[in-house]
């Protein structure tokens, strides 16, 4: 998995490429930790993410909850069909802000 971080007008965008699974989700968790700040706006751009499992979903859920607690905003965008179906199965697509 590759994570590229870009800042755009106060928004931190994480471009996630590859697999988000049991092996790689700790890396995402560590990357996101320092970004959780008062009023932070974080976006996960998942255009190049081709696989997500429950471990990845937990990191995403945890990021959402932490940002909500500090008044921040969390968005996920550009999910492909396969990954979207996993979000749909688990109800995450109803919970999270997906573009």
């Amino acid at each position: 998995m590759d994570i590229t971080i870009l800042e755009e007008g106060g928004t931190t965008i994480l471009h996630i490429a590859g697999r988000l699974d049991t092996v790689t989700s700790p890396e995402l968790e560590q990357t996101v930790k320092p970004l959780i700040d008062l009023g932070a706006v974080v976006v996960f751009d998942c255009e190049k993410m081709d696989y997500v499992s429950s471990s990845g979903l937990r990191v995403i859920l945890s990021t959402y909850k932490q940002l909500a607690a500090v008044g921040g905003k969390f968005t996920i965008r550009n999910l492909n069909k396969e990954v979207q179906s996993v979000f749909d199965l688990t109800g995450f697509s109803r919970l999270l802000n997906i573009e």
């Binding site: 179906s85 199965l89 688990t90």
Partner: peptide, 12 residues
Amino acid sequence: RDDLSLSILRGL
């Protein structure tokens, strides 16, 4: 042990 995994499996 893991309800999230179970719900994914049921769907797959």
